[in-house]
């Protein structure tokens, strides 16, 4: 009978990176409005866990506060706001019916994006702490998958979720590279996102009132022809 080999810190970091990536894929594969929000919430909770882990490894106490803030604002308040919006929307079908890129292709495309991020992280001359550079490619992947979600989907709500994913990626990037901004800036950023989400929710309401749907295709009519 073999002993269970205990994982070291770096293994823990790797495992948490894997779980974060899997959670990000949760957003890509879902179709329903509330499914995205759930997936986003799980992803953010895991992100907060990751930040806590980084804080533990690097023993920078500010990161604990940042992680708590992430949990509070991004995992609880923002999904709440968006859930409220989803409930109030007029459109009866709360599903992404036919996105620009079909789900199966977008899943595989996201995998390729992850591959590319890992490749780029090798190439870019950003030197960082060895233990934390595990997350550099992950933050790239989050960023690109977020962009990809915005590009490939039709519904405005999903665009918001994509934007938030990008933000999560940037946040992770900042934590990894600079070990966190100063606390004030961090709080300011959080407030900024909160305001952004509220504004875009209001926009969503306006959109669904004007066009009777949240399909961003309608925005094409705004083009000056």
């Amino acid at each position: 009978m073999s002993d269970l080999i205990l994982p070291t810190q770096i293994d823990l970091l790797h495992v948490s990176a894997v779980i974060l990536l899997i959670a990000t894929f949760g957003i890509v594969v879902r179709r329903g409005f509330s499914d995205w929000l759930h997936a986003y919430r799980y992803q953010t909770i895991i992100l907060a866990g990751v930040v806590t882990l980084i804080a533990f490894v690097t023993s920078i106490w500010e990161l604990y506060i940042v992680s708590a803030l992430t949990l509070g604002i991004k995992a609880i308040i923002i999904p709440k706001v968006l859930f409220y919006v989803t409930k109030k929307l007029d459109s009866p079908i709360k599903l992404e019916m036919n996105p620009y890129v079909s789900l199966r292709i977008s899943v595989i495309a996201s995998a390729l994006l992850v591959a590319m991020s890992y490749f780029m992280a090798l190439q870019l001359p950003i030197s960082s702490d060895k233990t934390i550079s595990v997350f550099l490619p992950v933050s790239f992947s989050l960023f690109f998958i977020g962009l990809f979600i915005i590009i490939s989907r039709r519904k405005a709500l999903n665009q918001i979720v994509g934007l938030l994913t990008i933000e999560n990626g940037l946040f992770l990037f900042a934590v990894v590279v600079t070990h966190g901004f100063s606390l004030i800036i961090e709080i300011g950023l959080m407030a900024d996102i909160l305001v952004g989400v509220i504004i875009s929710s209001i926009l969503l309401f306006r959109m669904s009132h004007t066009f009777d749907s949240v399909d961003i295709k309608n925005l094409e009519s705004l083009r000056d022809d």
């Binding site: 780029m120 190439q123 590009i151 925005l219």
Partner: peptide, 28 residues
């Protein structure tokens, strides 16, 4: 010039990726 928001962001993303890859190879 299609007016689709998605398309514009796609251009941005493609340019960004191309630039990053270019920078990556260039420094390497």
């Amino acid at each position: 010039q299609s007016g689709k928001v998605n398309a514009y962001i796609l251009y941005i993303m493609v340019t960004l990726v191309a630039l990053l890859l270019f920078v990556g190879f260039g420094t390497h």
